[in-house]
Write a protein that binds this DNA or RNA. Structure first.
Length: 296
DNA sequence: CGCCAGGTTAGAG
DNA sequence: CTCTAACATGGC
């Protein structure tokens, strides 16, 4: 008989798992994790291992159960790190809440959604492709595209009657053409950009480890060298993968709409107005963005 | 049918 | 540097 490996991860006081679950639940088409009530299941590739795990809220902690195989001690350590990154558990939100308490725009939101954290995408390739898919289309359709993409080109693990998917590997995607992607209803643009990004990763011209430790602007410029990656996409990926606190997609229509509604404006704010608002959140732009998005 | 969507590029001025 | 058209298709 195999004993299930399990462990707990302590969480900060300023952490609300339920709010993060709301984010994870936002599309029924999400295929990179599964929700069963308040329990999340996800398959991750860590090093050479594939680990399916289950996550639920415990007493001042997250409870993790590994569902298949017998993970090594190293696997468990990496998984613990992964989950910490996924929910941004290392960030101390107190300074952000202090800033927010002094600002009319976010004051109420910070109270209402206290403990809500940026649910990240530790995989940079996934993060960038997801950003490309989300460009200039509504989120529902972006999820449809992602579902088709992952189900076609990702790998899966069948466990207790449910398929758990891994995001496609760059080496796989680098070999795709319009013939593969247009039938999934990718635009020619999205198809081209997706493959270009995959090539950059597959050839190691770009990698998470190469960007690690770079300053924000240096990393951003590196990403923007890839065709299809503009300011919005680069900031989005840096926010979701590396958690640069000052990364935020300035041009994002969601941010603009949130500001318009909260300030009861009859038009969207200009980019200059958005910049001015975010000046108050210097060093916390990513979290200001998260709470604005949440307000929608 | 019309308008908008978690934008980017290329080209013109 | 700023402005604009084209891209391309679903959701509402």
């Amino acid at each position: 008989m195999i004993m299930k490996a399990q462990f707990t991860i302590p969480v900060p006081l300023e952490f609300n798992f339920e709010l993060c679950l709301e984010f994870l639940r936002r599309s029924p088409r999400e295929v990179l994790h599964r929700l069963d009530g308040d329990v999340v299941r996800k398959l991750v590739r860590i090093g050479h291992s594939e680990i399916l795990f289950e996550l639920r809220s415990g007493d001042k902690c997250l409870e993790v159960v590994v569902l298949h195989e017998s993970p090594t001690a190293s696997d468990l350590l990496h998984l613990k790190t992964y989950i910490g990154e996924w929910f941004d558990l290392a960030t101390d939100l107190k300074p952000f809440y202090l800033l927010a308490s002094r600002d009319k725009l976010l004051k109420d939101l910070a109270i209402k959604y206290y403990g809500y954290r940026i649910v990240g995408q530790p995989d940079l390739f996934e993060s960038m492709v997801w950003a490309i898919l989300g460009q200039q289309i509504n989120l529902q359709f972006a999820y449809t595209l992602k579902q088709r993409f992952v189900e076609h080109f990702g790998s899966k693990l069948l466990f207790e009657g449910t398929d758990y998917y891994l995001f496609p590997k760059p080496e796989t995607v680098a070999l795709l053409t319009d013939d593969h992607l247009l039938p999934l209803q990718f635009s020619r643009q999205k198809s081209k950009y997706t493959v270009l990004i995959a090539e950059a990763f597959a050839t190691n011209a770009l990698s998470r480890s190469a960007l690690e430790g770079m300053h924000f602007n240096e990393a951003k410029e590196k990403l923007m060298k890839i065709k299809g990656v503009g300011n919005w996409t680069a900031n989005y990926a840096l926010m979701k993968t590396f958690r640069y606190p000052d990364a935020f997609p300035l041009e994002d229509v969601g941010i603009h709409n949130a500001i318009r509604i909260l300030k009861k404006m009859d038009r969207k704010p200009t980019l200059e107005e958005v910049k001015k608002i975010f000046k108050k959140y210097k060093g916390w732009e990513a979290y200001a963005t998260l709470y604005l998005w949440k307000s929608l």
